[in-house]
Design a binder for these strands. Structure first.
Lengths: 340, 340
DNA sequence: TGTTAGCACTCGTGTAAAATGAGTGCTAAA
DNA sequence: TTTAGCACTCATTTTACACGAGTGCTAACA
């Protein structure tokens, strides 16, 4: 277990390093007013902290920097609850307003605010469709062979998919089809669509359509082709301002993995609610081992949850970032809940 | 005017430099088999070419690199029409297939192919809505106070906008409204929507709705709020592989401007059809003065044109890139035309 | 008169040695 | 237990020097 003094030294080292990105020496620590003992004493404590794995040296005679274990301890035990400044709160209030009606815009704004206020890269993941039900289907024929199906869910989410129409199908048939679909599929949970489609619709189709096999085939493609959940990112360039990324190699490998939207989305997707901090090598992706990823969830009601996240160097302003994410998560949740 | 020999030397210098990114010396040029004269002669020619501003030195005793003027001459006069290799054509054919029905997917694939085949950054701009007409409007009420309007254009493009519904408006009224709108607005060019809305609809609204002022207001917002044209980019990290971008400063300034989607879109937006090459300082944006931007247009029929572009270092494989863009432009155009 | 060989000169690059200084670990005294 | 003192380490910066690719110029050559 760490002594109080060790904790104090560790705290100063991490706080300073987060601020300066440079190794901290014993003299610098001794200068801090909260610290009452001499550099020599501090050196002894630092040697112990290093043995315990909380800090490390960059070379034999350098000052110390926090190790990942040090950050972990810091995040777990040393974070004092921070409050956002009034001006920050104002920025948040002004940019995410309840009057906004579009999910997309709210989320984009939030990502913008997050990255602007932190100078890290922000990511927001939309919800996985769990219990949303289908509210309405429209099919609009575009040409003789193509049509577009428009789906509206109970949460107001709109999607459209293009599909081929069997040659045998007339406008008339299409209308019938839409009626059948709306009749049978309204208020059906999205997840059960396939089942319903196969069970009930198939039977009805057989009665009404000349070419039910093809119709079913195309319809299935249109309705069930799950599009990947969209990931909103902002402030991708912020990470370039961090001194730890003055190496083109690093930038390249990190950016390459960040461009893979599905991989990122998968990283953020979580079933558990609440905040999660991944420091350095705790991250699954090799390319992120110099980074920390902090995620938390927001709720859209009806059991749908999404994720907001910030990606920065391991030397992150954990305290501020965590409160900021908490505030934003609450705000998003309350905005979305007010919609339904 | 340049002598044949000067042109030949210039051509070798640019070809070699595009390939190696290193200054070319007189000896290296003399080694090329097409070149029959000695290094000393070449040095004389190079001195002249430098006086004329086509090439420059990086320092007093270095080999020569092309100047922007040199590239300009190269692009204007020295490009020999290239053919794509069979494997490249196969890749293009396989990734952009006529059976694809979604604009978005076709365009995304094209951007991917472009950046993959060139190792530069590709951008594709969707069409500005010119003569598209409205095909159908649907309004679906989401809650007591909100609804979503879904617009389908003659080209099959689907858009949806959320809007507030006046408290006085009942579901019944909403249906009437949709009928009126469909009746009056179908086949109306998007551009004339506002006019029509103000002229005819307003009058009808007054008869049918208790709260026509509010309805008109909200409706206008929903229908006329033009969303910016989407810009599809791919291969943003490719530029990091170019040796001219081994400087974090440069990367940062370029990436920062690339993140501004509207600025990029504005840069690509053009009224003229055909290919355009902007070399270095010919670019409007300061951040792009080490880059070349090559754009060309594609057509969607009905007077709509979009833009495809490639962004790379000034030391670009102009010849290959230009043929590639031409091929892709044709393919996109023919794909889209086959839809209508 | 155009072309080429020869040569002195320039300047970026790479390497090695020396100087600097921030910071440490250890010892011994307080 | 704490601290002052000191030798030691090592990244960084500076300086010097050698190397070599490439040039410009001059003079000789075809």
């Amino acid at each position: 277990m760490l002594t109080d003094r060790q904790v104090q030294v560790l705290q100063v080292i991490i706080d300073e390093f987060i601020q300066s990105a440079e190794p901290i020496g014993s003299r610098a620590i001794a200068k801090k007013e909260q610290v009452t003992f001499s550099p020599a004493t501090i050196r002894n404590e630092m040697a112990d902290l290093e043995d315990l794995g909380f800090i490390e040296k960059t070379h034999t005679s350098s000052g110390r920097i926090p190790s990942e274990r040090g950050y972990r301890f810091y995040v777990d035990h040393l974070l004092s609850p921070t409050r956002l400044s009034e001006s920050e709160m104002t920025i948040i209030r002004n940019s995410i307003r309840k009057e906004m009606l579009e999910f997309e815009r709210v989320v984009q704004q939030s990502a913008r605010v997050l990255s602007d206020l932190t100078n890290y890269t922000s990511m927001i993941l939309g919800p996985e469709v769990f219990e949303t039900t289908l509210k309405q289907i429209q099919i609009i024929s575009l040409s003789e062979y193509t049509a577009v199906a428009i789906l509206v869910t109970s949460t107001g989410h709109v999607e459209h998919r293009y599909f081929n129409v069997p040659a045998s199908m007339k406008t008339n048939d299409l209308e019938k089809l839409v009626n059948i679909l709306n009749d049978r599929l309204t208020d059906v949970p999205i997840i059960q669509l396939e089942e319903k489609l196969y069970g009930e619709i198939m039977v009805l189709l057989r009665e009404h359509s000349d070419d039910y096999e093809m119709t079913y085939h195309y319809l299935k493609e249109a309705l069930l082709d799950k599009q990947p959940v969209k990931l909103y990112m902002d402030g991708k360039t912020n990470i370039l301002m961090q001194p730890e990324f003055n190496d083109v190699q690093k930038i390249q490998s990190l950016y390459t993995v960040m461009e893979k939207e599905d991989e990122m989305a998968h990283l953020l997707r979580t079933s558990e609610q609440g905040m999660k901090v991944s420091i350095g090598h705790e991250n699954q992706l090799d390319e992120m081992q110099d980074c920390s990823l902090i995620t938390t969830t927001y709720s859209l009601g009806e059991g749908q949850i999404g994720t907001i996240a910030l990606l920065g160097p391991t030397r992150m302003e954990y305290s501020r970032v965590i409160t900021l994410l908490n505030v934003l998560s609450k705000r998003l949740t309350s905005t979305f809940h007010s919609w339904y």
